[in-house]
């Protein structure tokens, strides 16, 4: 991606967040973490749960990697980081199992797989291990939130088109205060089965990627227009 050879001043927070949420988004920009993305997004709630779990792991992993950056030798950094990430995921899994048992039963299998989520090791390796604590945490927050919104959007589309509901069982995840989130968009809906099945994940992700391209092109066109317009203005001024 074009962002790799970017030379930002250290800890430019707005750009960290814009990168995480849009330009260098884990799923839409870096095209990482597609396995959990496609697997769990049969509903918006599942996506949100997976996203939050990933965000927690990312935050803790970036934080510890940044704290340990001066004592970890580059030669053993990968095993050290993997051990740390695996430990964090194990702790998150135990915690979920104990305190959010219903959600754990839904996400169950995919929680341990967060260890292999390349996006987490990717952020630790390319960002957190070279940065101070605060920017590292900000980066994890931005990347995690970026991942969450994509998971929720993909899950939401698949849920609405596939089962006619949105945020079904959200109260299992967020507590009974969030019962109002659970809506039936289309009552007595038979659903487009394809969208609940794995191909549906690919389709929606594809549409989302296309949409991002369109928006990006629209923005850059706008910029170009503005530049040419100002240039044009200058030339007409000169001629007059």
């Amino acid at each position: 991606m074009e962002t790799n050879n970017r030379k930002d001043p250290p800890a430019h927070y707005p750009s960290i967040f814009i990168d995480g949420l849009w330009h260098n988004n884990v799923a839409l920009g870096q095209m990482l973490a597609l396995c959990p993305l496609l697997a769990v997004t049969t509903s918006a709630t599942n996506g949100l749960g997976m996203g939050i779990a990933t965000l927690v792991v990312m935050l803790s992993a970036n934080l510890t990697a940044s704290l340990l950056r001066d004592i970890v030798s580059p030669q053993v950094r990968i095993p050290v980081f993997i051990v740390l990430i695996a430990a964090i995921v194990t702790l998150v899994e135990m915690w979920l199992n104990a305190w959010m048992h219903e959600l754990y039963k839904i996400l169950g299998l995919f929680i341990p797989l967060i260890v292999t989520n390349c996006a987490i090791l990717g952020r630790v390796e390319s960002f957190a291990s070279k940065q101070k604590v605060l920017p590292a945490v900000a980066d994890a927050l931005a990347m995690g939130l970026g991942f969450i919104w994509v998971l929720v959007v993909v899950g939401g589309f698949r849920e609405i088109l596939g089962s006619g509901t949105l945020f079904a069982h959200a109260s299992l995840l967020l507590g009974s205060n969030f019962q109002w989130l659970e809506t039936t968009i289309i009552p007595d809906y038979q659903g487009i089965l394809l969208l609940i099945l794995p191909p549906g994940g690919f389709l929606i992700l594809g549409f989302l990627l296309g949409l991002k391209r369109l928006v990006d092109r629209f923005i850059s066109n706008k910029k170009e227009q503005r530049v040419t317009a100002t240039l044009h203005g200058m030339t007409t001024e000169n001629s007059s």
Binding site: M94, N97, W99
Partner: peptide, 9 residues
């Protein structure tokens, strides 16, 4: 972590 959670699990 295990000590803290295994009873609840």
């Amino acid at each position: 972590g295990y000590q803290a959670t295994h009873e609840r699990i």
